[in-house]
Nucleic acid binder design. Structure first.
Length: 491
RNA sequence: CGGGGUGUAGCACAGCCCGGUUAGUGCGCUGCGUUCGGGACGCAGAGGCCGGAGGUUCGAAUCCUCUCACCCCGACCA
C-alpha cells in the first residue's frame, strides 16, 4: 500500500472525499460548490441513467427537454414553491460582456441588462406547467408522462462532492393526470421504481415513506421518499416523488374538459433522483481499500491482469487472456483486459480495488501451465484458483453472488442500526452512541419536530408506508401517537 | 453571513517565529537499466511571477497593510 486512505472508522468524511478523488469519480471545479465528474465516475452515473431510463420507459414515460432558464416571474406563481427555492437561485441579469476600459479583462456590459431576469432552474415545475397549459385541453390529452434528464442549480452554502453540489445532474419526471387517484397512483408507482432501483441495482436497502409537512417539497401536497442508511449511521434521502395535487395546475391555470365537458384543474406529480445517488452508492458499500461497486452498476465487471516476466510469457499470457475476454464478452459481461506494460500487477490490483471493480482475474505463467486462473472478488477480498474451462459460468454466478452479498451486507447493517426508542432518554442515548434509524412515536406536530431537531439534530426522515398502526406516546411531548416514524441524523 | 484555518512544482507539504548563498522534501512526471503472482529499485533529468497588490529594508517566501481565493465549523438544503 503506497498512500493509505483515511480509515472509514476514524475519519468518515475524509475517507469519503479520498475515495471520490482516488477512484477517479470526481473533483472540485474552479467554481465553488461545483464538481467535475471524471470519466470513471460518469460511467457509473451512465449505468444508473440507462437503468432508470429503461424503467421510466417501461412505465410509460417519454423523455423531453425544457430549457435551463426560467423567467423570474414564473417562480413566484406558486407561493410555497417560491418560498422554498428563492434563497438558492442563481440569476442571469445580463447577456453580454465587453472589454473593460482599463484593458484588464472583460466586464459585464451594463447596456446589456435583461428586461426580465432569468433564473437558472432549481427544478422545472414552473416552465413545465406553463407549457402543459398549452398541451392540455381535454381529458383526451391526459395523462402526460414526461421525464427529463437535466442539470439544475441550487446555490448551496455548504457543498460536498455528489452529496450536495451547487450544480447537479438529475432526472425530473413531470406528469399530469385527469384524476386525483391517478396522480396519487403515479406518485407511488415512481416511488416503487426508485425503491426497486436502489435495492436491485444499487444493492442498497431503502425505507419508503412520506415526508412531514416541514420536510416536503415546496409546492407539493405530499412528498414521498426513499431513505437509505449510510455506513456512518447517518440517513440519506435517495429519491423523492411528489403528489402535487392541483397546486401547479392552479398556479399556471392548467384546466381540461372532462367527459361531461366540465372544466377541471389537472392533477400533477413530479419525481427525481440525482447524482447524489453516486454519494449513496459510495457510502453504502465501500471500505478502507476503496470503492465497492455492485456488479449491475460497475462500468467494468471483470478486469483481467496479466502476469509475466518476459516478452515470451507476455505474449502467451495475452493470447490466453484474449480468449477469456472474448468468452466473457459473449456471455454479456463487461470485461477490461489491462495489458498496459507501464504498471506492475501489484499496482493494478490496488488500483482496481480502489475503483471497486467486482471481479479480478490474474493470469500468469503458472496458470498457463495448470490451465487455471486466479479469481478475486472485491466485496469479500477472497481469492481462489479455478480451471479455465469453467471461467464463464463461474464468473456469471459470482457476479450474481456479489450483487446479493453486498445487498445483504447493507441490509444487515441497517437492521443492526435500526433501533426502537420509547422515551426521550433512550432516544438521545441511541443518537449519541449508535446513530442509525430510530423508530419512535411522534405527536404529529411541527413544533415537536422542530424542538427535536433543535436539541438533537435528528430529523424525521419519513413516516414509513409499510408501517403498522401502533398506539403510543410521543417521545418528546408525551402526547398520544398512532404510529412510529423514522428519526435519524441525516445528510 | 459569523468563528477558525490555509495559499510555496501536477499533488501533499517543509521553510516563515528569528529577513541574508542557487527555495527544499516526498509522491507523480521524462529517459535508461534491472524488475514484474499484492502499490519495485537504481541512476540521470524536467518542472516554481512562494495567491495578488502595495509598503518596510541594502536585501522579503519570511516583517507590515490591503485584497482575492479556497478549506473546516455553525444557520439553510436533494
Amino acid at each position: 500500500m503506497a498512500q493509505a486512505i483515511p480509515k472509514k472508522s476514524e475519519d468518515y468524511s475524509g475517507w469519503y472525499n479520498e475515495i471520490v478523488k482516488r477512484a477517479d469519480l470526481a473533483e472540485h471545479s474552479p467554481v465553488r460548490g461545483c464538481m467535475i465528474i471524471k470519466p470513471y465516475g460518469f460511467s457509473i452515473w451512465e449505468k444508473m441513467q440507462q437503468t432508470l431510463d429503461r424503467m421510466f420507459k417501461e412505465t410509460g414515460h417519454s423523455n423531453a427537454y425544457f430549457p435551463i432558464f426560467v423567467p423570474k416571474s414564473y417562480l413566484s406563481k406558486e407561493a410555497d414553491h417560491v418560498e422554498g427555492f428563492a434563497k438558492e437561485c442563481a440569476v442571469v441579469t445580463h447577456y453580454r460582456l465587453k472589454n473593460s476600459d482599463t484593458g484588464e479583462g472583460v466586464i459585464v456590459d451594463p447596456e446589456a441588462k435583461l428586461e426580465e431576469e432569468l433564473i437558472i432552474r432549481p427544478t422545472s415545475e414552473t416552465v413545465i406547467w406553463d407549457t402543459y397549459k398549452n398541451w392540455i385541453q381535454s381529458y383526451r390529452d391526459l395523462p402526460i408522462l414526461v421525464n427529463q434528464w437535466a442539470n439544475v442549480v441550487r446555490w448551496e452554502m455548504r457543498t460536498r462532492l455528489f452529496l450536495r453540489t451547487a450544480e447537479f445532474l438529475w432526472q425530473e419526471g413531470h406528469t399530469a393526470h385527469a384524476t386525483r387517484q391517478e396522480a396519487e397512483e403515479e406518485t407511488l408507482r415512481m416511488l416503487d421504481v426508485y425503491a426497486t432501483f436502489a435495492e436491485d441495482y444499487m444493492a442498497m436497502p431503502v425505507i419508503k415513506g412520506s415526508k412531514t409537512e416541514s420536510e416536503k417539497f415546496p409546492g407539493a401536497v405530499d412528498t414521498y421518499c426513499i431513505e437509505a442508511l449510510m455506513q456512518d449511521g447517518k440517513a440519506l434521502q435517495a429519491g423523492t416523488s411528489h403528489f402535487l395535487g392541483q397546486n401547479f395546475a392552479k398556479a399556471f391555470d392548467v384546466k381540461f374538459a372532462d367527459k361531461e365537458g366540465k372544466l377541471e384543474h389537472v392533477w400533477g406529480t413530479s419525481w427525481g433522483v440525482s447524482t447524489r445517488l453516486m454519494g449513496a452508492l459510495i457510502m453504502a458499500h465501500s471500505d478502507d481499500d476503496g470503492l465497492v461497486l455492485p456488479p449491475k452498476l460497475a462500468p467494468i465487471e471483470v478486469v483481467i491482469v496479466p502476469i509475466y516476466r518476459n516478452d515470451e510469457q507476455k505474449s502467451m499470457v495475452e493470447d490466453k487472456a484474449d480468449v477469456i475476454q472474448e468468452q466473457l464478452r459473449e456471455a454479456g459481461i463487461t470485461v477490461k483486459f489491462d495489458n498496459r506494460d507501464t504498471h506492475k500487477p501489484g499496482w493494478k490490483f490496488a488500483e482496481y480495488e480502489l475503483k471497486g471493480v467486482p471481479v479480478r482475474l490474474a493470469l500468469g505463467p503458472k496458470d498457463l501451465e495448470n490451465g487455471t486462473v486466479e479469481v478475486a472478488r472485491r466485496d469479500t477480498r477472497e481469492k481462489e484458483v479455478i480451471s479455465l474451462e469453467s471461467v464463464t459460468t463461474h464468473i456469471k454466478s459470482l457476479l450474481v453472488d456479489i450483487q446479493d452479498n453486498i445487498y445483504k451486507r447493507a441490509f444487515d447493517y441497517r437492521a443492526a442500526n435500526t433501533s426502537v426508542a420509547n422515551n426521550w432518554e433512550e432516544f438521545t442515548n441511541i443518537l449519541d452512541e449508535k446513530g442509525g434509524f430510530i423508530e419512535a412515536h411522534w405527536d404529529g406536530t411541527a413544533e415537536t419536530e422542530d424542538k427535536i431537531k433543535e436539541e438533537t439534530k435528528a430529523t424525521i426522515r419519513c413516516i414509513p408506508i409499510d408501517t403498522k398502526d401502533e398506539e403510543g406516546n410521543c417521545i418528546y411531548s408525551g402526547n398520544p401517537s398512532k404510529r412510529r416514524v423514522i428519526f435519524a441524523r441525516a445528510y
